[in-house]
Amino acid sequence: MADETRAAPAPAPAPAADAGPADAAEGRRLPWAPACALDDTAGRVPTVVVDDVHIVYRVHGAGSGRGGATAALSRMLRRGAGDAERGVRTVHAVRGVSFTAHRGEAIGLIGSNGSGKSTLLRAIAGLLPPERGRVYTDGQPSLLGVNAALMGDLTGERNVVLGGLAMGMSREQIKERYQEIVDFSGINDKGDFISLPMRTYSSGMQARLRFSIAAAKDHDVLMIDEALATGDAKFRARSEARVRELREHAGTVFLVSHSNQSIRDTCNRVLWLERGELRLDGPTEEVLRAYEKFSGR
């Protein structure tokens, strides 16, 4: 996941077209028919409106590496100098993306590593403030990612509780779902492992527990970031079934994946990002065909 947060290492300035005024965004929309599988004549309620969003990461200590501490100091003290000269690299990860998502859609995000997919998801979830542009949402979108709240030194049991609380569940809800979470993860299939510290688990077991905790809650707008690629075949099938279930409860689902098959299975609309720009937005088959041609598969 870590490499997903970085954009292509070419911090070129934003294309001039991106600086267009917000009200022009509608005009630049791609001429495609969204959500062809769904009723698209009436009652299409937008749940997420992304309006010309730009996201820039600032990376400290990534200066050119010339000279030692004194050079770094003099760079830093050069007031009024741009970020680059002060040893701060900026990475323009998302460049002017606009789209509207509607209730009932399942939207896949595809693109090569570092194309800005996960970054865009975080911006939609309101976790990463956009540099320019706005994201409007219906309710609170949630990212299916509880990893960061879990601690390897704690037992699986305590991590279930901690992760649940971090996602905003109440203690009662967690107590209610606890057994379900443990059973779903299959951690206890081979003995009582849930009472051992999480750092003693294999990476596959850790990933299973993480997904099980994250998927225990129902969400309005749900975003899944590569969660389906974890675990063995049996667990993968189980988690795909769970995602379909979550989709039925959620208004809108976003899925980031490098597996075109799981995109085909779950999504009816696909956004293709490349170098932070929205390259194509349309029905799953169309976009995937273009993407496969592009990536030479």
Partner: peptide, 10 residues
């Protein structure tokens, strides 16, 4: 966004 009562995320 305002027509459908969407709020600014974050």
């Amino acid at each position: 966004a305002s027509k459908y009562g969407l709020s600014v995320s974050g």
